[in-house]
Every structure is written in C-alpha cells, then in structure tokens.
Amino acid sequence: MSRLAEVLASGGQVFTAEFPVIDGPNMAKVERAANRLRPWFDAVNATDNPAATAHTSNVATAIAMQMHGLEPVLQIVCRDKNRLAIEADLSGAALHGIENVVMLTGDDVTAGDEPETRRVFDVDGPIAVRIARTLRSGTYLSGRPLSPAPSFLIGAVENPAAPPLEYRVQRVAKKIEAGAQFLQLQICYHPDRLEQFMAGVVAAGYDIPILPTIVLVKSARPLQFMHDKVPGIDIPQGTIDRVANASDPAEAAYQLVLEQARHALSLPGVRGLHITDFRNDDTLERLMTDVGREPRYQ
C-alpha cells in the first residue's frame, strides 16, 4: 500500500502537489524540486505532457522523483496515448513500484505549442480509470493476465466550475463506478461553485476523498493567462483586478491563494489540497504554515 493510500485510509488530511515539468537531462532540477516539496506532501503528481506540451515523460519523471525520496502520483492523460500505451504506462509504473495513479482525459492538442499534432483520445478519463482498475484486478483490457497484479491507488479529476455545473456532481458517481478512489479538482476561482459542488457530493453521499487545487501565483499576469488560455478555467475580472491593482501585487496574490485554501479546507467533504506552485519562492512554506500543515517527511 502506498503512503498516500495509507494517509487516505487513516482519515487524515491529505496534501498533494504538482511536480514541475522536466526537460532533458536535468536531474538537478528534479533534486531541487523534490527537496522543496518533500516535507509537506504525501505524494506529488508526475504530470503527462501538461497543457498539451511535450516534456520528460510521466513515467520517467515519476521514477526520478522516487530516486529523490518523493512519492509519485503517476498522471496519465488520454490525449497522446491509445489504450495499449496507457496500459503500458500502468504496467511500467507497477514495475518500478509506483502505485498511485491519476487518470484523466486531458487538454486538447490545440491548447499546446504543437497544435498541429494528431489527437488520440482512443478512450476518455472514466474509461482510463476503469482500465487502471482492470489492471489492478490482474488482467489487461483484453483479459490477458499480468502477474503479479499491481496495487494501484486510482485517482481521477473533475472540474467543479465548468458547465454543465449541475451535472458535475453526477460525474463523481461515474468516476467512482469506474474505479476512482480519490479526486483532484481543477483550480476553481468561483468559490460559490466549489461550495455547490461539494455540497452536492456530500448530499449524494459519495464517499471519496476530494482535494481541490490551489495555484500559487505571484501577480495578475498568470491569472489572466489561465483565464485566457487554459481550457475550463474562468477567473472573474474582479479577482484579477484585485491582484493587478494592489499596491503589492505579490502579497495580494498570496492573500487570494490563502483565502482560497482556507475556504476549500472549510468545506464538508474536502480532505485536503492539491497545490500547484508557479511562484517558486518562500510562499509555499508560508502557505503550508498558514493553513496549519506541519512538515511531515524528511
């Protein structure tokens, strides 16, 4: 059982994070990032060509993270891989003792810097979740056995703020049915929507740990970028202006993040947070301290 699975099973608060992208033979960056993130997080996502841009592969990054004492969550996206490649990623991860996986549909190729690429989407996020569960039961999708069966902890993602809002809660049920054991949410800049989503999940009695995402930014520019360029993220103009027009935008951006983190943690059904750090300054430690998170791992 992975450490993340143990913490989830214990009922305690769970913090995960996004590992920065790696490009080329830069193990020094892996080491720096691992040292920075290790104390605070139960596990950290090794991303799979995030924002539809090519980087060091998800499995290679996850192995490198393990080498530096960080427990990985292997992210697998359906955009670049057909079902055979997804199964190969899962089997390869299992070979290296990687047990946490998170399966998602992924941004389209048009969101990235090689928009002329052929998109794959042979399967979608919920099917990918079920594929991971199928491998865990000891067979590939074909029914051919793989032995020993991997011990996966399977995650999925959901966007609580994208239309159709009233249907997003039902998607949680679908992902649980597919085999999801925890959910990481897309960053949500509409607190009311996150509240409604979580209230819906709790009211429906869906028993799954949920980790809303919080993104550490330093100014209004990345907020405007996310609003304009990242599919499924809408940031109210007032929120962007609040940072842009502040006398100290970096501090205003931090206060916004802290507010989001505290709000998310106050909601019934929320088990912790998933952190993406675009600041790379001392505010990660500050945020952890301000939300009452102690350093846990050496």
Partner: peptide, 13 residues
Amino acid sequence: PKTLRNGPCGGVR
C-alpha cells in the same frame, strides 16, 4: 472533437 463517450471534459467554456 475528442470523441468522448462519457460526458463533457473539464475544458467546457
């Protein structure tokens, strides 16, 4: 465009 069979993705505008 993604030929999804299981509902809307998270990128809906």
